[in-house]
């Protein structure tokens, strides 16, 4: 019997969320098919990749990273280099140094630093917080003001601070926000409901549904992404139609497989290679499960994932 393809059609689509300005923009989402199912209907916007730098600088202990950023001495220089990383669509700045336990850089100084970075790059920007909910609420307010008009995405608004993040970043300055939940589908939906009840347009919201490095409970991440995409498309649930963005780097570059020294585990081979493999495996799995964007650190991972996306869509 001849094969007759039956396209899986949905009367629903993932919201298209655009960040950046002018001709330097990137759009997350917009598709009405399951991840990479471009044979069912065209996927207009490919999944995108962010190159991440920390406000504490790069990890120069990794030879590949040190080489990529060679000659950069200041953070804006590194950011500029990161923004030009082949395969990357946007720059993600992680504000690790503003966390109370990690230097506690002041809100004013951090905002000034981000402004300095933004001045030398013209690509779309994602601002990742310090992972302190109190500090992030203050940081995002100040940075949303400093980057007024740049149409940036803030990661993230959480259950504890969504009110102030929504009001300051999304409503006062029309920036985009990510709603973060930790691998909890019901909370993911609830947070979207609460943010939209604040008056934020659903089209201004992305979801960070949480992540885990491959092998560290990733199957929960995958099933969560699956369930969310199927509610969004098959059940036309408009409280789950926000595109998914997944910070992968922060998960994978802290696990043992990525950081254990080669001297301690000679049979594992070079640490950097392992870390890159973890980053690629986790990013590929995140995209296959439904992520519309991943945030990565290593230039080799960015190159590999970019190639994967282009060849599949």
């Amino acid at each position: 019997m001849p094969f007759k393809p039956v396209p899986q059609k949905f009367n629903a689509k993932i919201n298209a969320l655009t960040i950046g300005t002018g001709d330097k923009t990137v759009t997350l989402g917009g598709e009405s098919v399951f991840p990479f199912y471009s044979f069912d209907a065209p996927i207009e916007h490919r999944p995108s990749i962010g190159a991440e730098i920390s406000d504490l600088g790069i990890d120069s202990s990794l030879p590949g990273v040190a080489e990529y950023y060679s000659g950069c001495s200041t953070l804006p220089e590194m950011a500029k280099r990161a923004s030009e990383m082949p395969g990357a669509d946007f720059l993600a700045i992680s504000l690790d140094g503003a966390h109370p336990d990690n230097g506690d850089r002041s809100v004013e100084d951090t905002a000034a630093l981000v402004k300095e970075i933004a001045a030398v790059v013209d690509c779309p920007l994602v601002i990742e917080g310090s992972r302190s909910v109190e500090k992030d609420a203050k940081l995002f307010e100040k940075i949303a003001e400093a980057l007024d008009g740049r149409n940036v995405l803030f990661l993230s608004a959480r259950e504890e601070n969504y009110k102030s993040v929504s009001a300051a970043a999304a409503m006062a300055y029309s920036q985009k926000i990510g709603a973060e939940s930790a691998v909890d589908i019901n909370l993911a939906k609830q947070l979207n409901v609460l943010i939209s009840q604040m008056g934020v347009k659903t089209e201004s919201v992305a979801m960070n549904l949480g992540s885990a490095a491959a092998g560290y409970g990733f199957e929960y991440v995958a099933t969560t992404f699956d369930r969310v995409k199927s509610a969004a498309l098959a059940q036309n649930d408009n409280m789950l139609q926000m595109p998914i963005i997944t910070p992968v780097a922060s998960e994978v570059w802290t696990v043992k497989e990525s950081i254990a020294a080669e001297e301690d585990f000679p049979e594992w081979g070079p640490a950097e290679e392992r870390g890159v493999n973890m980053e690629i495996a986790t990013a590929a799995a995140s995209l296959a499960a439904g992520s519309n964007a991943v945030i990565l650190r290593h230039p080799q991972s960015v190159a590999a994932i970019s190639k994967l996306i282009v060849e599949l869509i």
Binding site: K189, Q190, N192, V193, L194, Q197, V228, D237, L240
Partner: peptide, 9 residues
């Protein structure tokens, strides 16, 4: 439909 605490709203 997926449950959320505000499902009645």
């Amino acid at each position: 439909t997926l449950y959320a605490d505000s499902y009645l709203e």
